[in-house]
Design a protein around this nucleic acid. Structure first.
Lengths: 197, 197
DNA sequence: ATTTTTTTTCTAACAGCGTTTGGAAAACCT
DNA sequence: AGGTTTTCCAAACGCTGTTAGAAAAAAAAT
């Protein structure tokens, strides 16, 4: 009777193996080096099998992107619950994005179409930065309760600053220098917060 | 006698045709859609001819990247001569980068490995953002003459803010919304300048 | 004007890519 | 054991960047 369940389990396993393998190759060779055939090789299946799990390579990458954004959003929600002070919240959010980009650079690259990673559709990207039901937007709103329209502007600026810092650091800085840049980043974030309060 | 000259002229023409065609295709279909064969088709030559002008597709893109950075740097140098006030200079620099990204988005994409464009080597990228002999660095240095080490930090932040703004805008905003974001950007730049003075 | 040499150009091919098709192999149910 | 369903893959298509070698054209030399 457990046959169907076993199959389900195996399918889930293969699916996550595909995703993991894609990330592994990307981390070692860059997303430019990720190909369906290479993934198939590692998971010891033939290439067409991958298409039983993902409609296309593009969708495969999009899955990784979505998972990345979800993980980040989870972190943000958690931070929002743990800390009360919006300033503290934002600092923590900044720190958590930074950590994410250091620990999973290849996911970050896919999330923001960087450095060889490329997902056709920008829908997820756009809606994830959207203001509605967004924890970071709400933090900023609490930080400056008077400004209505301006909150969205500030929110936009926030993302630009954060994203700019991380992506420039990722592509220009060698690993040993990243720790030093981190403090510049966090300092920049703090000054930004102060400049909008 | 003019034979050699005529050949030289023709070679230069073909070379620039290749570069222009690559940019044209990129603008219409994105860098993902740029292929050696398509370029060859447009310039009405066979694909191998392109390799008489560029060692590889990668080098071809790098040429476009270098030209882009040179054009920008020329603008910066010009601005530095025209205006005396470093604050005014920086505002003008910010505006000129913005205009560049609006007028030649495909070049901007290649310069910063964005949205399907990908150049293997990051050498040019890194040295172009380097502080030595950099007009923007000097502007910032003049803005806050006391800080020594901190100038480089601020310079780094400057690039992160600028790059973040433009690249996020380029990939998320539809054309009609760009004008509105421009004012958010310029306002952000001004506040940044004020916050470091 | 004809031949030789040099330069320019292209055809054909290689290896790799994402993706699809058709059928073989395996697993399952009865 | 036979029939059905599911799983899987070899082979192929059209695309990619790139290279080798021959053909064509142009120039130079006779």
């Amino acid at each position: 009777m457990g046959i169907v369940e076993r199959r389900e389990r195996l399918k889930k396993q293969v699916r996550s193996d595909i995703l993991k393998t894609a990330r592994d190759i990307a981390r070692e060779e860059g997303w430019q080096g990720v190909s369906i055939r290479k993934i198939a090789d590692v998971i010891e299946y033939s290439p067409p099998i991958i298409y039983e799990y993902f409609d296309s390579k593009d969708k495969l990458l999009e899955t990784i992107r979505i998972a990345g954004f979800e993980e980040l959003r989870g972190e943000f929600d958690r931070i929002k619950e743990v800390y009360r002070d919006p300033e503290k919240q934002l600092v923590e959010v900044a720190q958590s994005i930074w950590n994410f980009s250091v620990e999973q650079p290849e996911v970050f690259q896919v999330m923001f179409n960087q450095d060889g990673a490329f997902v056709q559709s920008k829908k997820v990207y756009q809606q994830e930065l959207d203001i509605t039901n967004n924890p970071v937007w709400e933090m900023i709103a609490r930080l400056r309760p008077k400004a209505g329209e301006k909150v969205s502007m500030t929110y936009y600026e926030w993302w630009c600053l954060t994203y700019g810092f991380i992506s420039i650091t990722m592509t220009t800085q060698p690993k040993h220098a990243i720790a030093k840049v981190e403090s510049i980043y966090m300092e920049g974030v703090r000054r930004f917060i102060r400049s909008i309060m």
